[in-house]
Nucleic acid binder design. Structure first.
Length: 193
DNA sequence: TGAGTGATTGACT
DNA sequence: GTCAATCACTCAT
């Protein structure tokens, strides 16, 4: 994390809700020996420790330990017996909060994404949290690592404030009224539900 | 020890 | 629109 640019570090450490909004437009980059695969962050959700819908709500366990790491830590969790989702940890160390990356707009390595997604093309490539993990081909073993290595966040597209939309979260049954989901207005890769 | 749920997706009616 | 897949975790026996 020492290599992370100061502006980004400040954003992440400022807390999950603020970071979820500010991360929109940044480029999520996965670097492997095969090359770079990347996309612009188009949709996020914030999860803080006092949130009943957060994995960190009941305190630290083996599964969610990464959420309690320093800002910039990678949190990858396994769910529904078959899918992985990617989070960027926010806040101070020991604070149990993170931003779920729900959708990206492909920017680099389109052919690799298609291959990783078994030939799927178009918006179905990356318009969901587990879909984008599969498209990038992210190794679940990277859970707990710091960003700036295999997974990094780079300056992306500049967004007008009016392009950012806040909404209720989706895919959860607790605390659904929280305005903790953010997305780029009009971006076709934003997941529905 | 077992039932129920889940930060999802894809196939099917 | 409904629902199965499939496992880690929580909570109630």
């Amino acid at each position: 994390m020492g290599s992370m640019n100061p502006e980004l570090h400040e954003i992440l450490e400022s807390g999950a809700v603020h970071a979820a909004r500010a991360l929109l437009g940044y480029k999520l980059v996965y670097t492997t020996e095969m090359g770079r695969i990347a996309g612009y962050i188009a949709e996020t959700e914030a999860y803080i420790q006092k949130d009943p819908a957060s994995h960190s709500f009941r305190g630290e366990t083996l599964r969610n330990a990464s959420m309690f790491g320093p800002a910039g830590t990678i949190y990858i969790y396994f769910t529904y017996g078959m899918h992985y989702c990617l989070n960027i940890v926010t806040g101070k160390k020991e604070h149990g909060e993170a931003v779920l990356i729900r959708a990206i707009e492909p920017a680099e390595g389109l052919d690799s994404m298609k291959a990783n997604r078994n030939g799927i093309n178009g918006i179905e490539l990356t318009n969901g949290p587990a879909k984008l993990v599969e498209a990038l081909g992210i190794d679940p073993g990277l859970n707990g690592q710091a960003t700036g290595k295999e997974i990094s966040i780079e300056q992306g597209m500049q967004l007008e404030e009016s392009m950012i939309y806040a909404a209720k979260r989706i895919g959860i049954s607790k605390a659904t009224e929280e305005l903790a989901r953010f997305y780029i207005r009009g971006n076709p890769y934003v997941s529905r539900s």
